[in-house]
Amino acid sequence: MDMQTIDVLKAFVRSKLREDQSGHGMDHIERVVRNAQKIIQTQACDEFVVVAAAYLHDVADEKLVEDQEKAYQEIKEVLQVNGVPVEKIEHILYIIKNLSFSQEFEGKKTELSIEGQIVQDADRLDAMGAIGIIRTIYYGGHKGNKIYDSAIKPRLLQNKSEYREESTVINHFYEKILLLNDRLNTPYAKKIGKQRQEFLEKFLKEFLEEWE
Rank of each mutant, 00 (worst) to 15 (best):
K97G: 10
E74D: 13
N145W: 10
V119E: 03
K143L: 15
M1P: 15
E111K: 15
G132P: 08
K108L: 05
Y55V: 01
Q21R: 15
F48I: 04
I75D: 02
E198F: 12
M26K: 07
D46M: 05
K109I: 04
A122I: 00
D46T: 00
L64Q: 07
K176M: 11
D149K: 14
E111F: 05
M128K: 03
R196P: 09
A54W: 04
G132I: 00
K16Q: 10
N181V: 12
L99W: 02
Q37Y: 03
E104G: 15
E162K: 11
Q73V: 13
Y174V: 01
E212H: 15
V32T: 08
A60F: 00
F173W: 06
K143P: 09
E74I: 07
Y188Q: 12
V50T: 05
V65T: 13
K63D: 12
M128A: 08
N98A: 07
N82C: 02
L156G: 12
Q21G: 15
Q37P: 09
E106T: 11
F105N: 10
Q4I: 15
I6Y: 01
L180I: 10
V49N: 05
L180H: 08
Q68H: 07
L9P: 01
N185H: 08
L9Q: 05
N82E: 05
V50N: 04
P154G: 11
R18P: 08
L157H: 11
E30T: 12
L93W: 01
T168L: 07
N35K: 01
Y188G: 13
L125R: 06
Y55K: 03
I39M: 05
I40Q: 10
D2F: 10
V49D: 05
I92G: 10
I92M: 05
D20F: 05
Y148I: 06
H91V: 02
